[in-house]
């Protein structure tokens, strides 16, 4: 796992220059996730996420290497466990970017299964985004993820684990469709079952409907707390 993370990091470093004429962004996404049990089978997830850009290159524009704050998201998703493996949920996200608010409605379904040494998860999300001066955007997302302990057969307290995610997003806006693909690899530390921290790298590519694709590289830092 350590070798895989190192390999991924080196790939990220070397590939940044290989994007050529494509537009790209590289930065960090720290994220705080707080989950509160509100009733039997019901949980409320509150997520605070901010993006900072370290390096940015837009098509036919000079390279910008100045540290820049981009945006902050705050979301609430209420989920209900409908069976041993499945949950459904719905929520709302508010985004503050350039002094303007964007609103998003979220509906999601997830399936999580514990196998011998892996925990695998499928997530399907439908969301609708609204902001002043822009047409509404609709997205259908599917994410496959998994995590495995780095020692033993299960992720125990005070142990490290590895986590991977691969997500596909279909986007519709103003009668145009696009696709975004995301892949991430993270190293997690399970302080307790209710307190985890993850450090990873995420790669995103979109703009498949355009001449030049857009690439994004993010250093992700996630803190997951359950109360």
């Amino acid at each position: 796992m350590y070798k895989a993370l190192l390999g991924c990091f080196l790939f990220v470093l070397t590939s940044a220059t290989a994007f050529g004429q494509a537009s790209y962004k590289a930065g960090s996404i720290p994220q705080l996730n707080v989950n509160v049990k509100v009733a039997e089978n019901w949980k409320l997830n509150t997520k605070l996420e901010a993006r900072q850009i370290f390096r940015e290159k837009q098509r036919e524009a000079p390279l910008n290497q100045q540290l820049k704050y981009e945006r902050t998201d705050l979301s609430w998703v209420l989920t209900k466990k409908i069976s041993a493996d499945n949950t459904i949920g719905g929520g709302y996200l508010a985004r503050l970017e350039d002094g303007q608010f964007t609103h998003r409605l979220i509906q999601q379904f997830s399936n999580v299964k514990e196998l011998e040494v892996f925990i695998i998860a499928h997530r399907v999300v439908l969301d609708e985004t609204f902001s002043d001066g822009s047409p509404p955007e609709f997205r259908l997302r599917y994410r496959f993820g998994g995590e495995t302990p780095l020692s033993g057969q299960q992720i125990d307290p005070k142990e490290f684990y590895g986590k991977v995610n691969n997500e596909y997003l279909a986007l519709w806006s103003d009668k145009e469709a696009d696709l975004e693909i995301r892949a991430s690899l993270a190293l997690g530390y399970n302080a307790t079952d209710d307190n985890k921290i993850e450090l990873g790298l995420e790669y995103r590519v979109n703009g498949f409907s355009q001449v030049v694709r857009s690439h994004q590289l993010w250093l992700t830092i996630g803190w997951f707390l359950s109360i």
Binding site: A121, R123, D193, D194
Partner: peptide, 10 residues
């Protein structure tokens, strides 16, 4: 008791 998998859901 199922493990907490919130980090795979959100």
């Amino acid at each position: 008791v199922q493990r907490n998998t919130d980090n795979l859901i959100y």
